[in-house]
């Protein structure tokens, strides 16, 4: 028996095992698009970065509700009636408004099923938005930066002595 074959075989087996373990580690797989293309190329970099609009100006329900909320179409329109109304993206926005159709934004930060994430509790605990959402002000197109996996959530909860009771998040 050629020992080189044995070595190749062993390396292959070890590789396979490593891949299997890695797969096992990351199960269940989450394969959604981390930075999907949005129907309107809304730039957080321009809004939050260059113009310095605070997060809560648009996502105004975050301090009071579990969902942070995304601005109503009317809110977008209210500003953009005056601010660069002729740019092609704003035209798209206005077209939605004229049709009275909602913009089908694509969700970026998705939590697994059966997970309850109250925004207001995190705002109340003075967790910065960027902890979960990343440096949004630098993103032209929004992308997911945190893993949003349970271990990741738990780590933060542990560090901040927040509750690690299962029912805190899984109801």
């Amino acid at each position: 028996m050629k020992s080189s074959w044995l070595i190749v075989g062993l390396v292959f087996a070890a590789g396979l095992l490593a891949v299997a373990l890695l797969l096992l580690y990351s199960l269940p797989l989450e394969i959604s698009d981390r930075s999907p293309v949005q129907p309107i190329a809304f730039s957080h970099k321009v809004h939050a970065g260059a113009n310095g609009i605070p997060c809560l100006y648009c996502h105004r329900y975050a301090p009071v509700s579990s969902s942070a909320g995304i601005p109503a179409l009317a809110d977008c329109r209210a500003c953009h009636l005056f601010i660069s109304p002729d740019s092609p993206e704003i035209r798209k926005l206005m077209a939605y408004w004229d049709k009275r159709a909602a913009i089908p934004w694509v969700r970026v930060n998705t939590l697994p099923d059966h997970v309850y994430f109250p925004h207001m509790m995190h705002i109340r605990a003075k967790v910065d938005c960027s902890v979960c959402h990343g440096a949004v002000a630098t993103m032209e197109r929004i992308g997911r930066t945190a893993t949003l996996k349970m271990g990741w959530c738990l780590g933060c909860h542990r560090r901040h002595k927040a509750s690690i009771d299962c029912w805190t998040c899984h109801i």
Partner: peptide
Amino acid sequence: NEKLIPYLIG
């Protein structure tokens, strides 16, 4: 990815 449908009017 799910869709996030905003309000038309708040």
